[in-house]
């Protein structure tokens, strides 16, 4: 017994080192293995608060740019509204206080954004108190940003599309051939669309939009345009490099999308076959 104690005391530094190393490796593996790392994320009281404080200062420097983006978007929306012939539906939509569509949009501000790593996350300044829940989609006026994965009362964390674990259903805008949107970790402006069947007619510059197959994003949101494409090893699927419409390195305000019918659809899909 005495010898065991002596051994422990003599090697206390190495033992401490090994224990702490095991803890950090465990956290790393957990962060790599699951979509949700349970213990540590920036969506907590302390780091969320500090990021939000520093972002409050930072936002003032970009006000011009945000205004311009808003003008652009308003312009687009006005064009759409004024071109709808059926004025009754517009008035009905504008008048009604209750929302009757399939998707509900909320605004939020990005208070932390990274894009230089392999697995990137964003932090938003809205959380469960504002009705945000995990698995809601996040977009800007120009394109998609990611999917919410962790939420606390005040803040939420978003898995960016620039994350090696992000897989989002996307398709060509002119045909219905679809694939999965992934990122190879190299260029924050270029993402990859994989598993597109060989039969799909591809042309440089074609637009890629979200497919309606997931319950997270509505169909038809713009993502980017085709930069180049090649066949993968099996020679039967295309891997397409896509240039994002969105500048992922410069995101100010975002919309968080809630699919109102999600629970109903999921319930239907879970019903066992009889």
């Amino acid at each position: 017994m005495q010898q065991i104690f002596n051994f422990l005391i003599r090697n206390k530094n190495s033992i401490l080192f090994l224990i702490l190393l095991a803890v950090s490796i465990f956290l790393t593996v957990q962060n790599h293995a699951f979509q949700k790392s349970r213990f540590i994320s920036s969506a907590n009281f302390v780091s969320g608060g500090i990021y939000s404080w520093s972002n409050n200062i930072n936002t003032y420097l970009h006000l011009d740019e945000y205004n311009e983006r808003l003008l652009e978007e308003n312009n687009k929306l006005r064009n759409i509204i004024s071109n709808i012939n059926d004025s009754i539906t517009i008035n009905k939509q504008l008048d009604s206080t209750s929302f009757e569509g399939d998707y509900l949009f909320r605004t939020a501000r990005v208070i932390n954004n990274n894009f230089a790593k392999i697995d990137n996350y964003l932090t938003l300044n809205r959380g469960a108190n504002s009705g945000i829940k995990p698995e809601y989609g996040v977009i800007t006026s120009k394109g998609i940003v990611g999917i919410v994965d962790r939420v606390n009362d005040e803040y939420s964390r978003v898995i960016s599309i620039l994350n090696s674990r992000s897989r989002i259903n996307a398709q060509l805008s002119n045909t219905n051939h679809f694939g999965s949107l992934v990122w190879d970790g190299k260029d924050p402006n270029i993402v990859q669309l994989i598993d597109v069947p060989r039969q799909a007619p591809l042309k440089k510059g074609d637009t890629i939009i979200t497919g309606g197959r997931s319950l997270i994003f509505p169909k038809g949101l713009p993502i980017g345009s085709i930069e180049d494409f090649s066949l993968d090893q099996t020679q039967s699927y295309y891997t397409i490099n896509i240039k994002l419409f969105n500048d992922m390195t410069n995101i100010g305000y975002v919309y968080v999308i809630e699919n109102v019918n999600k629970e109903a659809v999921e319930k239907l899909q879970e019903t066992p076959n009889e």
Partner: peptide
């Protein structure tokens, strides 16, 4: 050793990177 671990884990919390800085 403990302080170094603490330093790394503080950075990790902000960076959402699991335990890589701590290690």
């Amino acid at each position: 050793l403990f302080l170094s671990f603490l330093l790394g884990i503080s950075i990790d919390i902000f960076e959402d990177s699991g335990g890589i800085n701590a290690a």
